[in-house]
């Protein structure tokens, strides 16, 4: 508890990097990872059927569409990688990581944000381009959107910290990578 209170950013009421803040996001990312992996297994023809309770052959249409194969690897495989990156960058570092390792928090924020953006784009493509819906793709999109809000407070704390670094006499570059000697120069 004492350690946590030391890591409350100035002008804040709580520390955004505590485990109770981060674990729910990591769990969401892991659920997203499993859903995307399952869909990728179908797209890679490793499994022959895909679960679709509501929209008939909607999932089949979407998962075999030209958009989903526009890249060398199927889009669900890329999504699975994105979720894994979210989970890994969500776990790395202690409860003071917003200032002790700003780089990981900023990579985490950048991983969560664009993944959500791509998910929304894919949700738009389903009905507009293919007149079909895919249940698990929608579930995956809901998860990636739900992760953005809770992840961004930590990102904000790190960005504010980097602003304080820039006005101190510490090296911005070294502080970004979390060198102890530089952290001590910043309030």
């Amino acid at each position: 508890m004492k350690e946590d209170s030391n890591h409350i950013p100035p002008g804040w009421d709580y520390n955004p990097a505590t485990w109770s803040q981060r674990i729910p996001i990591v769990i969401l990312a892991m659920v997203g990872f499993f859903i995307a992996s399952y869909l990728a297994l179908y797209q890679l023809d490793i499994i022959t059927n895909v679960w679709e309770p509501f929209f008939g052959d909607g999932s089949v249409t979407i998962l075999n569409s030209r958009v989903s194969h526009v890249l060398p690897i199927p889009d669900a495989a890329l999504g699975a990688f994105g979720y894994l990156l979210d989970a890994v960058t969500g776990v790395i570092g202690g409860t003071g990581r917003w200032k002790k390792m700003p780089w990981i928090v900023i990579v985490f924020g950048l991983a969560v944000g664009p993944l959500g953006f791509v998910s929304v784009m894919l949700v738009v493509f389903q009905p507009v381009l293919f007149s079909a819906w895919c249940t698990l793709c929608l579930c995956s999109a809901v998860i990636s959107i739900a992760m953005i809000g809770p992840a961004m407070d930590e990102m904000l704390a790190s960005l504010q910290y980097m602003k304080r670094v820039r006005r101190s006499d510490a090296s911005t570059w070294k502080a970004f990578w979390g060198l102890q000697s530089e952290i001590e120069k910043v309030n």
């Binding site: 950013p9 002008g11 904000l156 960005l159 602003k163």
Partner: peptide, 22 residues
């Protein structure tokens, strides 16, 4: 809750989080 001046603080000259840390 307070967020050190929020996102706007990233563009302000002397935002809440800098005042508090001073």
């Amino acid at each position: 809750k307070n967020y050190g001046g929020g996102w706007a603080s990233l563009w302000q000259k002397n935002p809440e989080h800098i005042q508090k840390s001073d």
